[in-house]
Design a protein around this nucleic acid. Structure first.
Length: 274
DNA sequence: TTCCAGGCGTATC
DNA sequence: GATACGCATGGA
């Protein structure tokens, strides 16, 4: 990893990285695009560590970031130690995946916090992305950062009404209570065999197959997890009637990210499959 | 206004 | 085990 310190900033040159594709693709909900003199800027958090990141002329600028924080937090968060060129090369053995990888070549799988991701995807169910972001934003504003399971476990349906999360509030409470009591240990879930991990997560009320899969992929870096929503279902029916290629099995979650982005934008621009 | 959203729990068969 | 339906809320 090549980086330089310039004033209070860290500057890097990083291949296979695009801010829009990585921070605004539905895997994380606390990043906000901001106006700036750069080509593109986002501000957001990992846990309660804030960051503003910009890009210009192929450089990425981590504003007001110490070398220590860059190396200890952001290197890992943005998964810079993983070679996405290799991943894309492998996935591109499949024709459709080759197109998808080329289409959104700057997607990276963020290494997010498991509790935050679990909560966020409980909130995501039967919901749209702007409103998901709104609920999470109210949550973080209220607790001045993403609340711990303990903080949320002390709440009840009425005290959470400010979230306007609808029927999902009771699910958030159930998750909080299970995690806060130690009945469900997310660190242990993260290293369980995948089917045991799925089962453990689905003991939470409001966590079904889709939310469990998202928690595993986005919150625990289980790249073999494969969330299936309406978009991916369509991809599978259209392009993989014989099943998803087995060579991609252990990184099918990353493949899913490329496909999700590809199919959604393909439909936006042509309103039909090509 | 009506439709619908990165689903899930519940009832019913 | 499959399928149908309601769910809170607000963006489009």
């Amino acid at each position: 990893m090549n980086y330089i310190q310039k004033g209070n900033d860290i500057i890097i040159w990083q291949n296979d990285f695009n801010l829009d594709e990585t921070l605004d693709c539905g895997q994380a909900f606390r990043w906000r695009k901001i106006d700036s003199d750069f080509d593109c800027s986002y501000t957001g958090f990992f846990l309660n560590q804030p960051l503003t990141i910009s890009t210009k002329d192929g450089q990425f600028i981590f504003h007001n970031t110490t070398e220590q924080d860059f190396l200890n937090i952001w290197m890992d968060y943005f998964d810079f130690k993983t070679d996405y060129s290799e991943i894309k090369k492998l996935l591109s053995r499949d024709k459709t995946l080759a197109k998808a990888c080329k289409f959104a070549s700057g997607i990276r799988l963020l290494r997010q916090d498991s509790w935050e991701v679990l909560c966020s995807f409980i909130i995501s169910q039967n919901n749209n992305i702007p409103r998901i972001k709104g609920i999470i934003s109210r949550l973080c504003e209220h607790y001045q950062g993403f609340p711990t399971p303990q903080e949320l476990a002390n709440e009840n349906i009425d005290s959470l009404s400010f979230l306007r999360a609808g029927f999902r509030a009771k699910y958030i409470l159930d998750a909080s209570r299970l995690v806060a009591s130690g009945e469900l240990d997310l660190d242990k879930v993260a290293i369980m065999p995948i089917d045991d991990a799925r089962k453990a997560l689905m003991t939470i009320k409001g966590v079904g197959p889709k939310v469990a899969e998202c928690a595993l992929l986005f919150g625990m870096y289980r790249t073999e997890a494969f969330p299936i929503d309406v978009w991916i279902k369509r991809v599978l029916e259209e392009y993989y009637p014989e099943g998803f290629p087995s060579f991609a099995k252990n990184i099918s979650g990353i493949a899913q990210q490329y496909l999700f982005h590809y199919i959604r934008n393909l439909e936006k621009s042509t309103s039909q499959l090509v």
